[in-house]
Design a protein around this nucleic acid. Structure first.
Lengths: 213, 213, 213, 213
DNA sequence: CATGAATGAGGTTTCATTCAT
DNA sequence: TATGAATGAAACCTCATTCAT
């Protein structure tokens, strides 16, 4: 952890457990009202705790925000990196398809976290923001890694894998960020299929022809 | 204008002029600190006005936010729709290329507005938010219109032009929203060229082969 | 005039005329919303003037209040004192009956002024308040004077004419101040008749027996 | 209580206790300066509390006003109605005399509340004002009830007991509202005695002759 | 003389944070 | 350790007053 969050308690396990509990329970109200509009009292209520207790585990309101995003993005990056390992045996196209399916579904499940990260990162201080950027970059890096495997095997032909990876990742985010546009017009599985088709076409994967025909 | 903003002054021209002036001058501090973190005093300072004067032209702080986004998105949509008319004589591929070039450059110039729209729309009330969504949808619609021209002329082959248009638009936004990632790795013209190549490849435009080879 | 009101204009006649105009036109909004809740802009609007013009004739908002009450109470006292002269030829009972009829009707007509005086006098500074008290006392004094005429002529028998006069006066005010109670239960002429009966009975006037029986 | 006042605290007993404490301590400054002229900071100072604490127990400044008047008038009405029960065994004339003595003394003690009710009711919203009117009417109703007892027993002869009751009540209020006139000329006990005499004379009570002679 | 835009002090209210119990 | 009452700085907003046009 780049940044230490002050806590009054010394029992580290308890602190971690409580913080997770708080992050989990705060999610709904936090996303619904936005960070600045949510009061500490509301957070405490959502956690069925007193305000005082909340401050035992977090030094400030902003720390909760930080922990909330950090934890979310960290878990996300770990999922992604976990997939990277698991998929080593697959051929690049299958691995990429699987990655897209997994990542886009994660975004659909955790759309509130994703939206939140887009909207509230600016409320963090510089150090925390840097950490967020690092976490968020890990997703792109993992995707890029998959793409490079395909390039190395000769299966993909991509001018700039970093940009391609970035595109793949942000188009997943858009399902969360622009729900108001997309959900009215597509359902998730349609969205995944069509974006997958497009991506495979772009990376020059052979199967693509079969898939889109 | 869907939503009326209360003003104390009755001189409509003056009100409009002052509102534009305020919107222009507020931009920097508003984007830098975020809406909730910016105080009305800071807005007034940025405009070299008194707080009282500010409230002569806007009924509330939120009205300033609304006007700021509404005006920005409205101008953007008008640019886009203006291009649509101008480009009627061009062939579809040229028109699309031109559109991308223009739109991506606009995003690069007005990245603060774009970022702001992604982050602060949640602070608006329901009516205002609906208006924002409408404005933002006009960009996608214009792009979709261009794509359909190409489909009709047989030049483009696209499974779902709405999704394609949406992708084109949001990838432009990303230059503003994820500057922290993209600017470190690419410059704008590179970004435009590579995204253009990818898009042309996806829409099945003939030139694409020459361009990407 | 005990207290000088500052004005920017030097033309005294114009000033007086304008002040009267303003006092007349302010009455409605002033009574409806109360002094503190009424803005200078609203007063100006009610007078179809600009705020600046208002300040040409009155040095401050409080001066308007002062002038408004002072003028009202002054005119009232003059009416009352005028009646005193006119009624010198009448016999005491008739004079008293006439006084009551006149005064109670004035209160019914100008109930807003009366109510206003009860509610807003506290917003005046000490000097102005003293002046109000003097004006208000003139009504009681006039009434007392009438009572003393009857005592001198042997027609009335009153232990304390000051208190009696005070009672007569404030029971008239109550028609204005407690309209919410009285208007639901009585009409003005009933109210006047019954209060007159009671008063005549108290002052020991002979006719009373005929009237109340 | 007709109208619910928002409080942040959930401990009802504490809320009630604090509200009473605040109402008691606010009285002086509130009456002295008037509601609109008194700042919340001054109220807090008068209560030796912080502004924030004040808002823990009252949702708004106006709620304090409401509570202050409501509590005062409520307690007054209860005293009056309590007397009504106690006095059932007395003969009507004694009961009425006792009532007047009690009510007029209450007004002398709580003149600030009474004055306040006359001056500040207009600052309440419609619902609260209606409640005030109801409370204030209870005093008149109680007095009217006493008068009707005398009428039924044949001891009193009154044309309109409602109006008579209203007169009795408002003449008590006048001791508070027109102190500037009355206190200079009479002391309380004189005032009570003289008004009692007058009232008994009007209601046609037999004893009156003995008393006034 | 008339106007009304500009000013900014001061009002009400909110809420992150502390600390006695 | 847990609670939630207390604090007060700071936010938004209003409006009496001034003064350039």
């Amino acid at each position: 952890m780049v940044r230490a969050i002050r806590a009054y308690s010394n029992d580290e396990d308890l602190v971690r457990e409580r913080r997770d509990y708080i992050a989990r329970n705060s999610a709904k109200v936090l996303v619904q009202k936005g960070f600045e509009r949510t009061t500490v009292q509301e957070l405490a209520d959502a956690c069925a705790m007193s305000v005082g207790s909340l401050y035992r585990y977090f030094g400030s309101k902003e720390d909760i925000l930080y922990y909330f995003i950090d934890r979310g993005l960290g878990m996300l990056a770990e999922s992604v990196e976990g997939y990277l390992e698991e998929s080593e045996s697959l051929n690049p196209t299958e691995a990429l398809e699987g990655f897209i399916r997994m990542y886009y579904r994660l975004m659909a499940d955790d759309w509130n976290l994703c939206l939140f990260a887009y909207q509230e990162t600016k409320n963090l201080d510089v150090a925390a923001r840097r950490k967020m950027i690092d976490d968020a970059s890990r997703d792109v890096a993992a995707c890029e890694c998959l793409l490079r495997r395909g390039i190395e095997s000769g299966e993909f032909k991509i001018e700039n894998p970093t940009l391609m990876a970035h595109n793949i990742i942000v188009l997943a985010h858009m399902w969360a960020v622009r729900r108001w546009f997309l959900r009215k017009r597509f359902n998730l599985e349609e969205y995944i299929r069509m974006q997958t088709d497009a991506i495979l076409k772009l990376v020059g994967a052979k199967e693509q022809e079969a898939v889109t025909s």
